[in-house]
Write a protein that binds this DNA or RNA. Sequence first.
RNA 1: GGGCAAGUGGUGGAAUGGUAUACACGCAGGACUUAAAAUCCUGUGGCCGAAAGGUCGUGAGGGUUCGACUCCCUCCUUGCCCACCA
Length: 824
Amino acid sequence: MKSYNTLEIKRIEDKWRKLWDEKKTFKVSADPAKKKYYVLEMFPYPSGKIHMGHVRNYTIADVMARFKMMQGFNVLHPMGYDAFGQPAENAAIKNHTDPGDWTYRCIAQMRDELKMMGFSYDWDRELATCDAEYYKWNQWIFLKMMEKGLAYKKASPVNWCPSCLTTLANEEVIHGACWRCKTEVVQKDLEQWYLKITHYNDALLEDLKKLKNWPSRVVAMQENWIGKSYGVEIYFKIKRNGGRLSVFTTRPDTIFGATYVVLAPEHPLVAALVKGTPAEKAVTDFVEKTRNVAKSVRVTGDSAKEGVFTGQYASNPVTDEEIPIWIGDYVLMDYGTGAIMAVPTHDQRDFLFSKEHNLPLRIVIQDPANPDAKPEDMKAAFEGEGKLVNSKPFNGIGNEEAKQKISQWMEQQAMGKITVNWRLRDWLISRQRYWGTPIPIIYCQKCGTVPVPEKDLPVELPQNVKITGEGGSPLLKVPEFVNVKCPKCGEKARRETDTMATFFDSSWYFLRFCSPVNSEKIFDEKEAAYWMPVDQYIGGIEHAILHLLYSRFFTKFLNDLGLVNVSEPFDRLLTQGMVLKDGEVMSKSRGNTVDPDSVISKYGADTLRLFILFAAPPEDQLEWNDSAIDGAWKFLSRVWNLVDMKFKSVSALPSSLTSQDKELERERNAAIKKITEDLSGHEGFKFNTAISQLMVLTNRIEKYEIKSPEQQAAFNHAVKTLVMLLAPFAPHVGEEMWEMMGNVPSIVRASWPTYNEAALKLDAVTMVVQINGKIRSKYEVQTDTQEDRLRDLVNSDEKLKAYIEGKEIKKFIVIPNKLISIVV
RNA sequence: GGGCAAGUGGUGGAAUGGUAUACACGCAGGACUUAAAAUCCUGUGGCCGAAAGGUCGUGAGGGUUCGACUCCCUCCUUGCCCACCA
């Protein structure tokens, strides 16, 4: 007899981890004869230690993977590291280490921690995005995109710290200042590389409809992000030079109320518009001032709307009125045409701007709640629905209908054209950083921008580069990297020193996992065709937009190249909830973390896995509770004791004679049914209720009395089922108990138990009697008792006399085996 | 401002429109022990009642239904995401 204690658990867990490793239990290869299942969790940034969020994410995935293995699927379950990125550079600055050394040390530590949890990865497929053999293919994809015109260079404003001489991500700009040195951040134009994700606007939006197994809120978030809106581009004539000024609006129904137009400060027409006029200086000053405000500060809805009058006028095409042209910081250059028509009565932003600068208002849509409203009394814009007024031929029409009519009419009159606008912008991938994939480009005085030839890939990151965080990109200061010969003409040339955004790396790693050891190709098409799409993807909601959108984009691109046969990478998506402690998200900065290591050393990985799945449904937030872990531990030890103390091999067959035997068999079948359903996820994955069902079965088995060899056999049968059902959740003890019962490991090769519907039937059921909706009585009756018999029971029921006697029974409803509802 | 979730015992949470609170945690009482820990047993939504039982009860208010945590409408609260996107 082995007692269930911390020491013993440690021995068992070590034993199985070692065996899985040695026997490569989870190694898989593509085999068209078998049904495949690809389970993938969002790979981690290798910070060294895993945290509870990782534990939760990967435990969910592991249960799915092991369940599918037992169901006979060929399961691909790989793991890797999203290893490029800023933390390595920050660590380098702080500790004077090399980002590469630091990262690989972290990876080694992280791998050990993942192994401690007993996850069923095929470790032969492990990859890190900072390996040259991986990022080589980033560069390859980039070149292919360039070839297809989907990667291009453009000057664009970036957040720039004048003291550190570096660009900053929006998150690094804190209250308009550099996060490191607190210097005020300015906007600076830099030539940078973009990926033309907007080429796939329509496909990215349309194909969201295919993603039936994604959480609806993720689909909604992507939809909003892509942001397709229908409207009209309206042409205004500039009075001074007769030029055309285009604005985009989704509200053509309000065109008769457009009382001025506003241009973004960066609008290309601004300079010509004011050149040589008295307003020139004021306008130039304003444009300059706006440039020096970080975008993240400018783009907040609640700040005052600043602007300046150009002194110029444009004519409203439908009224021929001359209306003033303004410059305003609330108009964004990179949406629509960078210019708007302002309708202050029916747009709150325009309303605020008009009050600030004393501009005219005209009501063109009547507020049904306030039909006699006067513009000068308005406290806010009216943005609801109503009938048109002051709109000549369209007066009296509902504004939704007017949208259609006015759009068509304007197009006929050549006043504008019906257009579609997208919120989605092209993806800026240039980063002025060291620890990322070098962009494979060479600049030659003679030949211009030259892509690095494919045979010269990878462009490797130089080592031993000093990272200071100041003075621009570290690669600029590595002459042997920068100075190269032009691949075209052989003359002196200069390498691109920017590296790629790390989202690039994670946009296709799921494909590399299909054939990770492959120096000839990005991946093997046949293997990718077998494994793709990912059947189940699991990760945090924080990646609901960017990572998932970019991965969808890359998959579509590689699909167009003919390398993959799917256009969507992830069939099913689960976004797991956060792990909280004391009501707050567990995080290092809050100092409220619980280290998985400390839990594992006390209770073992199985207990931790069980607790984290039992505490809440996978998509919900999970509140950490130290004492509830004891519950998981206690449960495992109870199962252990059943196997260890009461399981005895016997040659008899199970009997099904007594009611207790029948009851045990019923519970056994019920558990198989419920747990199989909960793990299949047809109505969402429910690990918490699956575990509670394991507990119910355990409770039942514990009460079972063994008085004969036949009953011992029935007991054994039930315990064996219990261990199989438990194994995906608690794999180490699962394997150990499986072996103790005389079976051959590994338990993942055992086939998942099936149930018998007939065994689920009860002999007797409790039926309740409701009178006018209130429960008044209960009966123990035989299953499937018919209505006649039930009526007899009701009629002879003393308790019901008071409610029924002397009253007319209007309805007598029977829900078989559940209840009787009587209306009197 | 827009979008999406979610509100159930002391706590985490269960409930194809059919006995609300499964399964746990916690707590209380008991057994074992010199004692404690561990383990086991019993109880555990509120109110009235010795009990039988009655009555109220799933954020608030309405509606549909024989019957509503579940479906519909209005509102409140909390969380998450997006947001000067014209």
